[in-house]
Computed example of a mutant assay.
Amino acid sequence: MRRWSELPETARDALGALTAFTGGAALSLAGLSTMTERGGELSLWMRFGVLATLCVATFFRRRKPVSAMLGGLVPLAVDTYLGATVPVWIIYADLIYSAVLYTGGRASRITAVCWSAFSGFVVTLTLALTGDLRSVALALVAVFSFVATPIWWANSVRTHKEIADAERTRAQALTLVAELDRRAAIADERTTMARDLHDVIAGHLSAIAIQSEAALGVLARGDTDPALAGIIRSIRSNSVSALQEMRTMIGLLRSSGAEDEVAAPRRLAQLSILVDAARAAGITVRARSTLDGAALPSAVDQAAYRIVQEALTNAMKHAPGQEVSVDVHAEDEVLRLSIRNPTAPVPPPRPEAEGGRRGLENMRERAAALGGSFHAGPHSGCWEVLARLPLGIGGES
């Protein structure tokens, strides 16, 4: 059935016409086609000619159903005059079915009403001419079989199609409503998250930036250790930078579409900002990159920046004063990140023990989301963070 429905409409109509002619010819050869007899011997070729003419009309049953039905009246009248045969009447019943089903609503109703009126006229005329109840009964059987049944069947199929179309339209409308509800829920959740970020985190970062600036003012009026001033400058720089990124994230969460102008997230092009902030905090950072300004997919670029940022933060927390090496290079359609630092002789206390591995999990999730790999752990006396991110990802920078 699937292969049949995939055929072109003209091919299906041609095969249908050929099948109808073959079946009708077989019934005629078997002597099972005659419904009423007429005196005299009739040539089979004459019967085949009438049948073939009607089958040609069936070739247009879908594209021009009314014309096919009206054109089929000629071979039907000839067949009735020569002696009605079953194949011709069955094929013409299909033409009536097609004229009711494949036309517009007005043409379908006109066809049904005309054939109903003609059927009533034939039965009444039979009763008036013969007065024989048996002849009237035969006329009623013929009308019911070859006229009423095709009209009823076509109307039933038409009704089911209209119901199916209405249900399909309703399902599409419900899908659209569900999608709008989903978008509204997402927008509401994003707004709530943006508000919470602003109220909880952005406020603290602003306080850190203001307090560190005040501390720098106090230190500038006295004789203090330059290293201490550098550390406080690093605190202020990091807090201001974090505050800017937090505002960017809040803007992204509040944005409702791509047309909103929001600052772009940090990328590897700003890697020097991370290095300078780490050096200002008092650690030695050796960074090496072979990208040379090469364009990377935006998702990979942003994820790589965040992984390096988190790895440097962990190094400053858990191995203070140790040299950190950062290596970034692309090879074979893969971006490779390597961040290494010697392990601290005595591990510092970790008050955040309950959520201390959240940073590692975040880096691993970022790599996995892009189809890459991530590894972090001790290696040859160093703590090593390795990430491999495939570059064959949509979203150009």
Rank of each mutant, 00 (worst) to 15 (best):
C55T: 07
C55F: 06
C55E: 01
V56F: 10
A57V: 02
F59P: 00
F59H: 09
F59W: 12
R61C: 05
R61S: 08
K64M: 11
P65F: 06
S67W: 14
G71V: 09
L73D: 02
P75Y: 04
P75R: 03
A77H: 07
V78G: 03
T80C: 10
Y81D: 08
Y81Q: 13
Y81H: 14
L82R: 08
A84D: 08
A84P: 06
V86K: 12
V86L: 15
V86I: 15
I90R: 08
I90V: 15
I91D: 06
Y92G: 02
A93D: 07
L95H: 02
Y97L: 12
A99G: 06
L101I: 03
Y102F: 14
T103D: 01
R106N: 13
R106Q: 14
A107C: 05
A107D: 12
S108E: 01
R109G: 09
T111Y: 02
A112Y: 03
A112K: 03
A112R: 02
V113R: 10
V113E: 05
V113C: 09
C114S: 15
C114M: 14
W115N: 06
S116F: 09
F118Q: 06
F118K: 00
F118W: 12
F121Q: 07
V122M: 11
T124P: 00
T124S: 15
T126L: 09
T126K: 03
T126W: 01
L127V: 10
A128V: 13
A128K: 11
A128Y: 11
L129P: 00
L129A: 14
L129E: 14
T130I: 10
G131T: 11
D132F: 09
L133P: 10
S135G: 11
S135C: 13
V136A: 14
V136P: 06
A137G: 15
A137M: 15
L138V: 13
L138E: 12
A139F: 05
A139G: 12
L140I: 15
L140Y: 04
A142W: 06
V143L: 04
F144R: 07
F144H: 11
F144V: 15
F146T: 01
F146D: 02
V147D: 00
A148H: 05
T149D: 00
T149R: 00
T149F: 08
P150E: 02
P150V: 01
W152Y: 00
